[in-house]
Computed example of a mutant assay.
Amino acid sequence: RIEKALKQYAEQLEVSNKIKEEMERVVNSSPVIVFKWRMEKDWPVEFVSENITQIGYTVEDFISGRIKYADILHPEYREKFHSRLEQHPDIRSDQFNQEYRIFTKSGDVRWVDERTFIQTAPSEKNILQGIILDITERKKAEEALLKAEEIRKKEIHHRVKNNLQVISSLLFLESENFKDKEIVEAFLDSRNRVRSMALIHEELYQSGDMSTIDFADYTRNLLNFLTRSYFMESKNIKLNSQIENVYLGMDTAIPLGMIINELVSNSLKHGFPDAIEGNVNVTLELDNNEFTLQISDDGIGFPENINFRQTASLGLQLVTTLVEQINGTIELERNGRTSFKIHFKELKCKVKV
Rank of each mutant, 00 (worst) to 15 (best):
F96S: 06
R110I: 08
G107D: 07
A121V: 02
K139T: 05
I118L: 15
R92S: 09
R101S: 01
R115T: 07
I91W: 12
R92L: 11
Q119P: 00
F96D: 03
A141W: 06
R110T: 04
Q98H: 06
T120F: 15
F103D: 01
D113W: 11
Q98R: 08
G130S: 05
Q95G: 03
R138H: 12
W111H: 11
V112A: 04
R101E: 10
A141E: 13
S123F: 14
L133I: 13
S93E: 13
R115P: 00
L128P: 00
I135S: 05
Q95P: 00
R110M: 09
F117G: 02
P122H: 13
D90C: 02
E142D: 07
K139Y: 03
D113V: 00
Q98N: 09
I118G: 12
K140C: 00
K140M: 08
Y100C: 02
G130P: 02
G130H: 09
F96L: 10
Q95L: 04
T116N: 14
S123Y: 13
V109W: 08
T104C: 09
Q98C: 10
N126P: 02
K125G: 14
Q119E: 12
Q98E: 05
T104R: 07
V109I: 15
R138M: 11
Q129Y: 15
F103T: 04
E137L: 13
T136P: 03
V112D: 05
Y100P: 01
S93N: 12
V112R: 06
T136N: 05
K139G: 02
S106G: 07
I91E: 08
E137R: 14
I91M: 09
T136V: 07
G107L: 10
G107C: 03
I127R: 13
N126M: 13
F117D: 05
F96R: 05
R115D: 08
Q129W: 06
D134P: 01
I127Q: 10
A121W: 05
D134R: 07
I135Y: 07
K139V: 05
P122L: 12
N126Y: 04
K140L: 11
L128Q: 08
A121K: 14
F96E: 01
A121L: 10
D90T: 07
I127E: 08
R115I: 06
R115A: 12
W111T: 03
Q129K: 11
R101H: 03
E137G: 04
V112T: 03
D113M: 11
S93G: 00
E99L: 02
